[in-house]
Design a protein around this nucleic acid. Sequence first.
DNA 1: GCCGCCTTTTACAGCTTTTTCACAGGTGGT
DNA 2: ACCACCTGTGAAAAAGCTGTAAAAGGCGGC
Lengths: 111, 111
Amino acid sequence: METALRRPPLRAGEVEVRPSEFLVLVNGERLHLTVRELELLTALVERRNRIVTREELYREVWGEPYRKSDRSVDVYVGKLRQKLEDAVPGRRFIHTHFGFGYRFAPDSDRG
Amino acid sequence: METALRRPPLRAGEVEVRPSEFLVLVNGERLHLTVRELELLTALVERRNRIVTREELYREVWGEPYRKSDRSVDVYVGKLRQKLEDAVPGRRFIHTHFGFGYRFAPDSDRG
DNA sequence: GCCGCCTTTTACAGCTTTTTCACAGGTGGT
DNA sequence: ACCACCTGTGAAAAAGCTGTAAAAGGCGGC
């Protein structure tokens, strides 16, 4: 968590991430996330509007090489989607790019 | 404790900390704290409404690097919670953020 | 020394999070 | 349509974190 303290705040649509405070706000409300969830969301928002591979996300968040059978990224994307859906019903933030990876975009389906 | 003398009084809900007098008041009543308890509470109130890591608290209060196995912060948070509960039954001041640290907030869960 | 008080360490139960697994269902290519 | 592979997700297992009582260690006063 050392690194988080130096990261600047990020904003993407209704989502504001303040890594240095371990805080995510959605429309001004605190989103309660676990450590992994926060780190993954931070990584995605830092790369917003870009397709990011599981390899890159896994290296960034888990800090070790990605094994192809590892589903952790998928599982945590699911958790984040659930919590974001609860916070902003009807909007989709994390988009799947089949065969490539994921992309965070607060706006349309094809950003 | 040179530093305490220069710290301004702090107020957070029913809690008032006067570092320069080594004094904590809760609803005007003196809260009897030991040195460690006072320093930890001061550190927390100075950072009120923010999540603070054990590492930061330990460095601030104990003045040396934090070892992950050290439970002192947790133990003293427990002591403070007990004394605050005795002073203001039913209110929760120190909130745990699992995997992150603690947060002092006299009010609701979200700071 | 002995006592009393404060601080640190230890131990363990209980709880939360993270990881892994399994399988249903989706997708793209032929 | 068929096949191979990819993704979503619930649930169980494993790992890790927190609360707290109690033991152990320190320190000053008498």
